[in-house]
Nucleic acid binder design. Structure first.
Lengths: 182, 182
DNA sequence: ACCTGAACACCGTTCAAGT
DNA sequence: ACCTGAACACCGTTCAAGT
């Protein structure tokens, strides 16, 4: 990549991170381009779809997912406590930006999505938690990873769109946990 | 209301029902106005917010909600069967139009929403089902109606946005049912 | 090879003019 | 009292011209 192209790419990603943090993933791309000091065409050359830009600003995010799973797994306590701890981390991770829960949960299992690798990071981390529970025999029959991601993602989506607080979300996650555990 | 105003109102609602069925609740209001043969200003006079229009086309829908609850309650079977039957009806009812699950579930409990009465119809019907289960002692402690609507609404939202089929939705509803039942 | 920015299509919203 | 439709602001997308 040419030097000026690289510079523009970096600036766009940097600015997008800022704009998305302020306004959510549905923020205007025009404003991103404007703040980054590039023409709208330049933004489109680098990121043909909005999801490509979202994917780019999520680079370091994958590490945080793995760390969060480590942290939840280190947690001592009942299977239910472990599961709830992970659910909370999960919701927090996909709710960093407004609109995130919907975008990420919709892309789940869609390998053609630009953010497919990010979704895979989530399912991989969730698998680790599930394997632990499975080994302890705490899991119901026929529960699989994707189902769990969709359930927790659904809760996060509703919470995101209805602006629910932790007090409202916690009980919902509790129900999902009870439905998944033996 | 003046005769021509009433006529325009009716035509807009009729056309909106058609357009929303084809393209979902996020369809262009411009197209609704165009197809109805009115200026955009006329549409705005009658329906200042998109939700007001959605509310209008949902008039007869309330009856269908009550009928669906009757039907589920008539269903003989285990508490789990009853609950799952209702969940399926619930998802079907709010998924009639693309974008419906998200709009309806977001407005849940928001009395200032233009579609507040529709949400109340849903919680009222769900209450009837829950009371039956409560009487049979089949319900867990601390489960309330709004939680259930949000959980099932969350599942429906994910299914709607990710274009999931019944085969994918069914197991999710099963988990929620298990989490809610004793 | 990459960038710019004008241009286009589309959408929601407002409002002066008309009946 | 109600309707019309031009006008505005905004957004995503494309592409010819420029470096």
């Amino acid at each position: 990549m040419r030097a000026d192209a690289q510079r523009n790419y970096d600036r766009i990603v940097e600015v997008a991170r800022e704009v998305f943090r302020e306004q959510g993933y549905d923020a205007s791309l025009d404003e991103v381009a404007k703040r980054a000091g590039v023409g709208p065409g330049t933004l489109y050359r680098h990121f043909p779809k909005r999801e490509n830009l979202i994917d780019a600003i999520m680079q370091s995010w994958v590490d945080r997912v793995d760390e969060a799973a480590d942290k939840a797994l280190a947690h001592e306590g009942s299977p239910r406590d472990l599961l709830l701890a992970w659910f909370e981390q999960y919701v927090a991770l996909i709710s960093l930006h407004k609109g995130g829960p919907a975008k990420i949960t919709s892309a789940m299992c869609d390998d053609s999505s630009p953010i497919a690798t990010k979704c895979q990071a989530l399912t991989r981390a969730t698998s680790r938690v599930l394997e632990r529970l499975e080994a302890e025999g705490a899991l119901r029959e026929g529960v699989d990873v994707v189902q769990m991601c969709r359930l927790v993602g659904g809760v996060a989506t509703v919470a995101d769109q209805a602006d629910l607080g932790t007090d409202d979300v916690q009980p919902l996650l509790g129900v999902v946990a009870d439905g998944v555990l033996r």
